[in-house]
């Protein structure tokens, strides 16, 4: 046998399709991350599209997917690079390399984007047009590596880019995107893993609080709300100590929050009505392996997509629900599906 015999390229044209890309992380050090595409009209999924279209593997640990114009930027955490792919033909359009442990990409303009990083103690500044690293924002806080900022997700608000620091950290950073400098931060409950901004200019942050036996921290996870102008805390809701909530997202109208805490919950982005609504029940019992590990909402029709890694070494599953939590479809993906990016038809 020969590796050459495994080449079996296909060509795709999905310019008239609306659908969702699913990033399948794959197993660490196994180089088996992959990308799936699910078409809304036909309810069909094609797995492993990057490999099928290009004959090259996506890489090791697909962390996140971001679509900008007609290109998908797939951040490959343990490959130190970002793969760029045409969203209609799935063809390889280049890559941004030389990144330490990249997590997410956040676009500021056609010529400027930030890339967060787990270990670099910095955010890289990228020129997406030239596909090169053009600078970095130093996040070094003078502490040992144990307490260095690990930058994760990024959101723009006015001229600022807000960054959450999850791994062994409790900070939300404010970066001035004009001067590319860290200018401020707020301290939140340990290990903020996700955040969103609502339509009232409030920042909602979800923290998992660490884990049992962690040398960093193990406190109750919490959902917090801050006023962005005053940076004052407006609201906090704590979870139980053995719970590990994550993946806070917001709908297109920026008035309803969704997150995973074993099951999927919904809560209005409001300080008045803060009742948690159990929207989708996990098929797994608490304590078993597997479970819901990713969530996203179709910005057009508000359908909810959740991913399930099953046993982490077989094909994962994605479930499609309407906005009321009624199951519409389910399908199999690659190994450990976890990130989503929606594509609209060009018609």
């Amino acid at each position: 046998m020969d590796d050459n015999l495994l080449w079996d390229q296909e060509s795709f044209n999905t310019s008239t399709y609306s659908g969702v890309f699913i990033g399948n992380e794959g197993n660490f050090m196994a180089d088996n991350a992959s990308l799936s595409f699910y078409d809304f009209d036909s309810s069909k999924v094609v797995n492993d599209i990057f490999y099928k279209a290009n004959g090259i593997r996506l890489g090791d640990v697909a962390q996140s997917i971001t679509i900008k114009d007609n290109l998908a930027y797939i951040v490959m955490n343990n490959s130190g690079k970002i793969q760029i792919m045409d969203i209609d033909s799935f063809t390889f359009k280049g890559k941004i390399t030389g990144l330490t442990s990249p997590r997410h990409i956040h676009f500021l303009s056609d010529e400027k984007a930030y890339v967060s990083d787990l270990y670099a103690q910095a955010i890289s500044i990228i020129n997406p047009e030239t596909k090169s690293v053009i600078g970095s924002i130093n996040l070094n806080n003078g502490n040992s590596q144990f307490l260095q900022h690990s930058s994760e997700k990024m959101i723009s608000w006015k001229k600022y880019v807000i960054v959450n620091c999850w791994s062994r950290d409790n900070k939300i950073l404010f970066i001035n995107s004009e001067t590319d400098q860290l200018i401020d931060s707020i301290t939140v409950v340990s290990q903020p893993n996700s955040m969103v901004i609502d339509n009232q200019d409030r920042l909602w942050i979800l923290s998992d609080g660490g884990f049992e036996g962690s040398s960093y921290d193990h406190v109750k996870g919490a959902l917090q709300c801050y006023d962005l102008s005053s940076k004052a805390q407006l609201f906090i809701k704590e979870f139980e100590l053995d719970e590990s909530p994550g993946d806070l997202i917001i709908n297109e109208n920026q008035d309803t929050l969704y997150f995973i805490n074993h099951d999927v919950y919904r809560i209005p982005a409001s300080l008045v009505d803060t009742t948690l609504e159990l929207l989708i029940k996990s098929p797994y019992t608490v304590g078993s392996s597997g479970g819901i590990n990713g969530i996203s909402i179709n910005p057009i029709n508000h359908e909810i997509f959740i991913s399930d890694a099953v046993d982490y070494s077989e094909k994962g599953k994605v479930y499609r629900y309407n906005q009321d939590g009624v199951l519409i479809d389910e399908f199999k993906t690659g190994i450990i599906p976890s990130s989503f990016a929606f594509k609209q038809s060009n018609e």
Binding site: D31, G80, K95, T97, L99
Partner: peptide
């Protein structure tokens, strides 16, 4: 050795 898909900086990982 690193993952074969690695294209990060030479002195990292």
């Amino acid at each position: 050795p690193r993952a074969t898909s690695y294209e990060g900086p030479n002195n990292d990982n």
